[in-house]
Amino acid sequence: MKTFKIIGLIALLIVLFEFIGGFNDGWSDVDKLAPISIESADPAFDKVTATTFDVLPDSAIQAANSQAGTTVPTGFMQCHSYIVPSGLTNFTYILLGLTGLVSFYGLYNLIRLFISIIRKEVFTSINIRRIRWGVYPPIAYHLVKYFLNWSETRDAMAQLTIPGYTIQPASPFEFSWIGILLLILLTEVFVVAVKLKQEFDHLKSSSTL
């Protein structure tokens, strides 16, 4: 049980570190995620939003190198521009906000889980609820985040033209599906372990009677 206590303490510190680091990164990059603000009388600028997407050069682009006195091939793999969000993209914004809020509750449950592990209260029914709330909402948030990226790149492909480049849709391999599956598997293994422990304790108490 001492090992569980140490693991629980380390896991709690890692979760807090990741949360604080992610919050600071998001706070620093908030301008990159916010809708574009342009001083213009054109009302269309009020409808556009910032997005970042991958691009693939159709052919080599030449850039003048003054130091070498020649031209060299150049290009970029990512572009930051502005689009008019489609209905699907706006709907995904709402889903992202909802799953993000639920993820905060999941984070609370995850912290409570690690605290109970530190207190050596591991195989309890309430920890089943805590670990599921701590795992599934963040997974849903990341899936919705990927879907939003896919929807935004689809909007960019339909609205933007970049000479010499092709806009690439969001790839389903941007994050580890294996990691998600392993996280779900470990969660359900923990749930089964708790239920087996409870059944064993029940049989043990019945046999003593």
Rank of each mutant, 00 (worst) to 15 (best):
M157A: 11
T153A: 12
V144E: 01
V30Y: 04
V192W: 09
Q198F: 05
A158D: 13
L56S: 09
S151L: 11
D29P: 00
T52A: 12
N24G: 04
L160S: 03
A193K: 09
F53D: 02
W27Y: 15
F19A: 15
M1C: 03
Q78T: 13
A11S: 14
L113I: 04
F91T: 08
K195C: 03
P138M: 03
I7M: 11
S207T: 01
I10G: 04
F76T: 03
I184Q: 00
L113A: 01
S125G: 10
T124W: 04
L56Y: 10
L33Y: 12
N149Y: 02
I38H: 09
S205F: 07
K145G: 06
I139K: 02
V144A: 05
H142N: 13
V191H: 10
T51W: 13
L148P: 07
H80L: 13
S207P: 00
S171P: 01
A34F: 07
F104C: 06
D54I: 03
I126S: 11
F91R: 03
T51N: 04
G21F: 12
S171H: 09
F23P: 03
I20T: 13
V189I: 14
V194E: 10
S86L: 06
F23L: 15
L181K: 00
F4D: 07
P169E: 06
I94G: 03
N109H: 05
I162V: 09
F4K: 08
A170Q: 04
G87I: 01
G8C: 06
G21L: 12
Y108C: 06
Q198M: 11
Y108Q: 05
G97Q: 04
G106S: 09
K195A: 06
Q159I: 04
L101P: 04
S171R: 07
Y108K: 07
L183P: 08
V72Q: 14
T99S: 15
L160E: 02
L16N: 09
L196Q: 08
I128R: 10
S81F: 11
R119G: 00
N109W: 14
S205H: 13
G100T: 05
P57E: 11
A158H: 02
N90T: 10
A193G: 01
T208W: 06
I117G: 00
T3N: 05
L101Q: 05
Q78H: 12
G69P: 09
I117S: 00
L98T: 01
V135G: 00
T161M: 07
M77N: 15
K145M: 09
M77T: 14
T166Y: 03
L181A: 14
I10F: 15
E152H: 06
V122F: 14
G75Q: 06
V135C: 06
I83C: 01
P169T: 06
Y141S: 10
S171N: 10
L16A: 11
L95T: 00
V72F: 11
A50E: 08
D58L: 15
G8D: 15
D54Y: 12
I14P: 04
L96M: 08
S66C: 10
I162A: 02
G26Q: 14
